[in-house]
Design a protein around this nucleic acid. Structure first.
Lengths: 131, 131
DNA sequence: CAAGTAACTATGAAATTTATTAGTAGCTCA
DNA sequence: TGAGCTACTAATAAATTTCATAGTTACTTG
């Protein structure tokens, strides 16, 4: 996924954006943190059914590198680490909401009856979804 | 990529949106058609440096299935096929623009000097880019 | 009559993304 | 004593996406 190599930075901003919050789990993590505020690692995982540790941890790393998510670790045992959105992270939420509105409108038309519930989050059509 | 199977339609709208215009070439095709209006297959390919026929043709198919792009073929020889955005396709342009604006702002901060030119399109920082 | 054209398709390989499984430290509770 | 907890990492495998190469049809132009 996105890494800060020189070569990769010579790109148009549209692609940068899609890389930062595209990808299978990134937008979902941003949604959950936008809704809940601060979450520990294990709480975050509980919110994301079907994600494994390897994937969650590496996705979080990417979001941290891109300054979307902030990580705060406490010096306790058992370990405690909290995640929340950065200001930059919060600023993508309106974009995600506009994508939701857009596709809500069009997808509904295409498939009135089938799009009732999401497997990955608790979105229900007409209920405002996860944002 | 996205296909209209029942299973895939039970998803949250955010993912539907990201699938429709995410992906390596989709947003680029939408941008070009938004700017130029109607283009023949070969003209479209000329605009997208480094894409191959296999990828362009299959990406176009996906965009057509999702009703983002309209295909009109003329009964001539040599063949003539024209592509343009549908109304639904035009309606994603503002979203792509908002992504551009967002990442233009943030990416600039991160990498003031490196993000000058895109390899895939003619975006130049500060010049309004490809949208 | 050979070469070129437009808009593709088919096939297989390479690259990338995502998933699976197992394991880590250092404590606490039964 | 040992099982459980937290927040991960490592190694590998599977799945998906993207790419490269070559070929197709039915004409037209040199």
């Amino acid at each position: 996924m996105y890494q800060h190599k020189m070569e990769d930075d010579i790109r148009c901003p549209l692609e940068y954006g899609l890389e930062v919050f595209g990808g299978k789990w990134k937008s979902r993590i941003i949604c959950v943190l936008a809704e809940k505020g601060i979450l520990r690692y294990s709480e975050l995982r509980k919110e994301m059914s079907n994600i494994t540790d390897a994937v969650l941890a590496s996705t979080l790393k990417e979001l941290i590198v891109d300054d979307i998510v902030h990580r705060k670790s406490f010096d306790e045992i058992p370990p405690r680490v909290e995640y929340c959105l950065t200001e930059k992270g919060k600023s993508v939420v309106p974009i995600l909401q506009s994508i939701c509105r857009w596709s809500g409108a069009y997808h509904k038309e295409d498939n009135e009856n089938t799009m009732l519930q999401c497997k990955k989050c608790d979105y229900k059509r007409g209920k405002g979804g996860n944002l």
